[in-house]
Design a protein around this nucleic acid. Structure first.
Lengths: 194, 194
DNA sequence: CCTCCTCTAGAACGGTCGTTCTAGAGTAAC
DNA sequence: GTTACTCTAGAACGACCGTTCTAGAGGAGG
């Protein structure tokens, strides 16, 4: 793997675990196995530029999980609940460290780092677009699909925070169950027209 | 207001807007109108101790909003949707700055600051306890009430992040609608026993 | 008046931050 | 061998961090 890719990946990992402000360049040099000189050679913009690259890269990678997780389930609601359960297991297996770097960073730097906030907004927007497309393909109306994507992402990001804080799967399981119940109401046939 | 209370309140405000790592003691002295000496006189534990006090104080204050927001609505689902809409309006009116300090800090420092993480976990636990009690009082079974509280908190915290990142009410409105739809399914009469 | 104590005030300190700078290793072309 | 260029390597730098320290202001009790 090329050095610049190693740097971006290491940054993504660090952002996911400890956020932007707490991640130092020195720590990044160790995690990426590249000294300061290399880092600033590849990324003249320094820490901020690397973080934006990491957020974009994460954004592209995570959205691919959506069909991967939901396609196996004929019943969409069932798939949603299973996806949250999977996330809960992953979180616990990594010692409650794994989270979504985009969510972590957004909460932290929304005001102090406008450039990063904008990149996070872009990533969220791409997720919503992709999620809407996918759920429309699963039979939801475009409006319902978009709202459901927002609801699903919100529940997931929020449950990550609670689960991580409490070191418990319960928030993720409860949020998954709730989101599944909500999605199930959307798939019911429209009420008969009078 | 006493100096120590001013300090805690200023810290809560700063945590809400920019998180723990990005909040400096110097900034706190300006926001609280108290010099360094006063701060360390009142809080020997320094920044960390003030942050824990701020989280606890916030935790106690926010949970009081629950009955305040939901009591006026006979229909629980309707109340939930209205509460999210209210949150969306507040967020926009403060220039997308207002968030929940507990959520912000938890995402940021879950690993780097174990003491703070533990306080956040306590606050979440108290919210879950109080929310479960309230929703049980509104007619839900204890299990449903607890799950619904987790789902509601998760959706709210997550939607805050998305809304703040995108500077849009849409995530909060979608999450509110979804949570309301889920709550509505819980209030339906139990299926007839065979 | 003096004494005692709480709290204010901010300068000073060591450490760490993100970044820059200088030096050299490696490699390909000629 | 020489040149040119990319990338590695880490020391050095100023700025700022959280914390500690010294000094004094302001009252309360005698």
């Amino acid at each position: 793997m090329k050095t610049d890719e190693r740097i971006v990946q290491a940054m993504a990992e660090l952002l996911r675990v400890q956020g932007y402000a707490a991640t130092g360049v020195k720590q990044l040099t160790e995690a990426a196995g590249a000294p300061t000189g290399s880092i600033y050679h590849h990324f003249k913009g320094g820490k901020r530029e690397i973080a934006t690259a990491a957020l974009r890269s994460t954004g592209a990678a995570y959205i691919q999980l959506l069909p991967l997780l939901l396609d196996p389930y004929d019943d969409l609601a069932e798939g949603v609940e299973a996806a949250f359960a999977q996330a809960a297991e992953d979180l616990e297996n990594t010692g409650w460290a794994n989270m979504c770097p985009v969510g972590t960073v957004t909460g932290e730097i929304a005001d102090a780092e406008p450039a990063l906030r904008e990149v996070a907004a872009e990533v969220f927007a791409s997720w919503v677009e992709e999620g809407t497309r996918y759920l429309t393909g699963r039979g939801l109306s475009p409006d319902d699909a978009r709202a459901a994507t927002y609801a699903l992402l919100s529940a997931l990001e929020g449950a990550f925070i609670l689960a991580r804080g409490q070191r418990s799967r319960e928030p993720l399981l409860a949020a998954g169950h709730a989101t599944a119940a909500y999605v199930a109401t959307l798939r019911k046939p429209a009420p008969l027209t009078p």
